[in-house]
Design a protein around this nucleic acid. Structure first.
Length: 594
RNA sequence: GAUCCCGUAGCUCAGCUGGAUAGAGCAACUGCCUUCUAAGUAGUAGGUCAUUGGUUCGACUCCAAUCGGGAUCACCA
């Protein structure tokens, strides 16, 4: 069954031809939802056609409307207000569409044969995940789902920053102050334990620095002479030389961190198809520098450092290889980009990274374009805004970081509190109840972080953000649970759906739901094109609102007309499927009772 | 200093790529549970879309300038 939008586009194009002999491509005809103060569901704005037709917009609207009503069985009514043609879709169409589709529980586009990699999470192994990482993880996971639903084959990748001076700092501090603690002996999660020593390093080196300053050192000398800092730098050199002891410690501590991360990933419901480690990729890219020098994309200075001139692109000169021949960050990113392409033959590659690195990715993509990489046009930096706290930015050194595990646990505790107060799940076993609290708490958190346009920075207020009412995840989950209760009752009552519904006259609140479901395809496409799960979040919220409105307005089972009972039951089931599907796209579980 | 992003109700956010009288939620106030889950629902109130110009039939949306907030501009990652 053809989608109403497509049918209308064809019909309007036909109308233009028949009435005005004007050729307009069906795909160029755009409809917007009719404002609720007017009759109808699809609106065509006619101002833009005034020139081509030589008629006033309202005249065009009236003539097109008349044509549609006569020639298109899906259109039952129309009205024209100023230059706006408001179209009412026939009940027959809506009913038929509902009957044909209400059992569907997936709305994915067919595969398009394209492969895309979504790199996200990409943590450092020196500290645990925090609120900022959560936005990244939820976004990356959701974008991967959305792209998959748009027909792509998706590879989720995690590029782990497992080497460098930061991890050496944790290692030095652990060597000096660690007393051979382990996650087992302390009961701490591995990432928390390692993070503890990263903080310890910072603390101790501050103490040492102030001692040096008291002895009369300058700021600069204190920095340089700091034995802890020197030890960390030495350790980095030892690591690069493959020193057995250093490598062993590095492996041990990173191992703890990975267990901790895995634990968190499982808890927040994200996953990866492949992992890259910087310890394996940090030397990549040097051959690319040589290649670029040969074909003149890069140039070399007298001191042997290698650069690229991006002034024509509105950027600057950028270093790609140090004078001592070692790589910088962007060198290994070039190498890693090649590696990803070699490994998976991807057409698109999405980097989910904060907007503080906008410049970096701008440069990287320009370089890869200049190097004529076949995948260059498919590169995209999904740049998301920072998550601010009421007191400003999170600073790990000032202890204002909101820890990811803690936050999830707080949300879960709040879910337990509120669920217990409502007392609706007395029949649940203890483990079922725990599972539900987690689902609700996590749903609230995910929805909160995903409903905002990724590009925008956002505010997270720990006290106020834990709300389960209104525009929240639990509200949508609740609507789903409510629908499941309806579906259960429909089953109990043995309600069947294969009736002739021709005589049925629909109510506005019923039509509103189906009309909104008709927008799903478009929304999903848009969310894929824009890499914006927020569109899905807002869409499903609106659907839940429409359903609750319907739920309050009509009685589903009390109606004497059995056709109405059956159809309302169908609408409920249909809405439930769409809600569950959309929530799954953004990584949220839809409970059947709550 | 240069470049980029942002500025919509008291607060947090939408606004479908230029269309109608700018929408939700929270907070405040008023109704609705003996009937399908009230984590709900119906309503009231709340706005000079930062400011000023420009483009046109029409601007929250596009352009320019100004003000305010943020980020980036390392032989750091």
């Amino acid at each position: 069954m053809q989608h109403i939008e497509y049918i209308l586009q064809q019909a309007v194009a036909e109308a233009f031809m028949a009435l005005f002999e004007v050729v307009i491509l069906p795909s160029d005809i755009k409809f917007s939802p009719t404002r609720k103060e007017f009759e109808g569901s699809h609106t065509l704005t006619c101002f833009q056609f005034a020139k081509q037709t030589g008629k006033a917009p309202d005249k065009v609207g009236t003539e097109i409307g008349t044509f549609l009503k006569q020639n298109c069985s899906c259109v039952s009514e129309f009205n024209v207000v100023k230059g706006f043609l408001n179209i009412t879709i026939s009940d027959t169409y809506i009913i038929k569409y509902t009957c044909n589709n209400f059992r569907k529980n997936t709305f994915d586009y067919p595969t398009n044969g394209q492969k895309v990699m979504v790199e996200y999470s990409s943590p450092n192994t020196n500290k645990p995940l925090h609120l900022g990482h959560l936005r990244n993880n939820f976004l990356g996971f959701a974008v991967a789902n959305v792209l998959k639903a748009n027909g792509y084959e998706v590879i989720k990748a995690n590029l782990i920053n497992d080497r460098g001076i930061h991890i050496c700092k944790s290692m030095i501090a652990y060597q000096k102050y660690g007393n051979n603690e382990t996650p087992d002996t302390t009961g701490l999660k591995g990432d928390k334990l390692v993070g503890k020593y990263y903080v310890e390093f910072d603390k101790q080196s501050k103490v040492i620095k102030s001692e040096l300053l008291e002895k009369g050192c300058t700021e600069e000398e204190a920095e340089k002479l700091n034995p802890l800092m020197l030890a960390a730098q030495n350790m980095l050199v030892d690591w690069e030389n493959g020193d057995d002891q250093v490598i062993a410690l590095w492996k041990k501590m990173n191992g703890w961190v990975y267990q901790g991360f895995e634990n968190t990933y499982t808890s927040i419901g994200v996953s990866f198809d492949t992992y890259y480690y910087e310890s394996n990729t940090y030397l990549l890219g040097k051959e690319i520098v040589e290649e670029g020098l040969k074909n003149g994309v890069f140039y070399q200075k007298d001191d042997n450092s290698v650069w690229i001139d991006l002034t024509e692109e509105g950027l600057d000169h950028k270093l790609v290889l140090r004078s001592d021949g070692t790589s910088v960050y962007i060198t290994q990113d070039m190498g890693t980009a090649d590696l990803k392409y070699k490994d998976f033959g991807i057409q698109k590659s999405i980097y989910v990274v904060g907007n503080e690195q906008d410049y970096h990715f701008n440069v990287l993509f320009h370089i890869l374009t200049k190097l004529k990489r076949p995948y260059a046009s498919g590169l995209h930096h999904l740049s998301y805004g920072m998550v601010d706290l009421p007191m400003g930015k999170m600073k790990s050194r000032e202890g204002t970081v909101v820890d990811a595990d803690d936050l999830v646990n707080e949300m879960k505790a709040e879910a337990e509190k509120q669920t217990t107060e409502l007392g609706k799940i007395d029949s649940f076993s203890a483990s079922e109840a725990q599972q539900l609290y987690h689902t609700i708490g996590l749903g609230a958190l995910k929805y909160f972080l995903l409903k905002v346009d990724p590009k925008k920075r956002m505010l997270f207020n720990p006290t106020e953000s834990i709300d389960f009412h209104g525009n929240t995840g639990p509200f949508i989950q609740y609507t789903h649970a409510r629908i499941c209760a309806i579906a259960r009752k429909s089953n109990e009552l043995n309600i069947t759906y294969d009736h002739n519904f021709d005589s049925l006259v629909l109510q506005q609140c019923e039509k509103n739901i189906i009309t909104h479901i008709l927008l799903l395809e478009k929304t999903l496409k848009q969310a894929g094109d824009d890499y914006s799960p927020a569109l899905i979040a807002n869409y499903v919220y609106d659907l839940a609102k429409l359903y609750n409105s319907f739920y309050g307005e009509v009685s589903i089972f009390q109606d004497p007309d059995s056709l109405k009972v059956a159809f309302r039951s169908m609408i409920s089931v249909y809405t439930g499927h769409v809600i569950k599907y959309c929530l799954a796209l953004i990584g949220i579980d839809a409970p059947e009772r709550m």
